[in-house]
């Protein structure tokens, strides 16, 4: 089979699957579900293939299956298998407490990585760029700083209890929260518009694909 023939077949398979998915616009039906289940099967198998080819096989080739493998390499290669085994024990109620050790391994390292990533990749760059925005344009920069701070304050729930037992938020916080709410609504509307435009672009591409298949 030549690559050209395969491209033609791929085009028609894609055409049929696209139509099956679009049939959902009429109602939830057998054809739509069939296409989705096929998609899930293919996607799951691809992720398994990537995990095996990209991570597991190179690991095994570098440790347990390495030529002239040493005792240290064997020990090192077995560690993830042991942790995996511990994780599997989570599904056995009587031995679930052993599975916690595997979870602890993943959580300890995962938390450290996410902590470093959050601080160096999100917090510091965002705070720094919000601060420097004032230098580019004073009014816009101040609006960005105001919006950032008030959006953050919108999500805090500090309140004081009055002598009569009523719990109220101090007025400066209420005011900041109200301003923050405006910024958040504008942000969500902007993200919503972005989502509409993106899906509209993909939709028009799909329609062009269907027409190209039919008209040649």
């Amino acid at each position: 089979m030549t690559p050209q023939t395969l491209d033609v077949i791929a085009g028609w398979v894609g055409f049929v699957l696209t139509l099956l998915i679009f049939s959902y616009l009429l109602a939830d039906n057998f054809l739509y579900r069939l296409a989705v289940y096929i998609f899930v099967g293919v996607a799951a198998a691809y992720s398994a293939v990537v995990a095996v080819e990209g991570v597991l096989l190179p690991w095994l080739r570098g440790t347990l299956l390495a030529p002239g493998v040493s005792a240290g390499q064997i020990l090192f290669g077995v560690v993830p298998l042991l942790i995996g085994l511990l994780l599997l024990l989570k599904s056995v109620p009587r031995l679930a407490f052993l599975g916690n050790l595997g979870m602890a391994f993943l959580i300890g390292i995962g938390v450290a990585v996410s902590l470093i990533g959050t601080i160096s990749g999100t917090l510091i760059p965002l705070i720094a760029s919000s601060g420097t925005a004032v230098g580019d344009n004073l009014v816009d920069g101040l609006i960005i700083i105001l919006g950032t701070i008030t959006s953050l304050l919108y999500f805090q729930y500090l309140a004081v209890r009055r002598p009569d037992g009523e719990i109220v938020r101090p007025w400066p916080l209420r005011l900041a929260g109200a301003v923050g709410q405006i910024f958040l609504i504008v942000t969500f509307a902007s993200l919503y518009a972005g989502a509409i435009l993106s899906s509209l672009t993909i939709f028009s591409e799909r329609i062009a694909f269907l027409l190209a298949q039919v008209l040649g």
Partner: peptide, 13 residues
């Protein structure tokens, strides 16, 4: 400007 400010607030939060 305003949408970017709100997004920064969300991300920092």
């Amino acid at each position: 400007i305003p949408a970017s400010a709100g997004a920064r607030g969300l991300l920092i939060g």
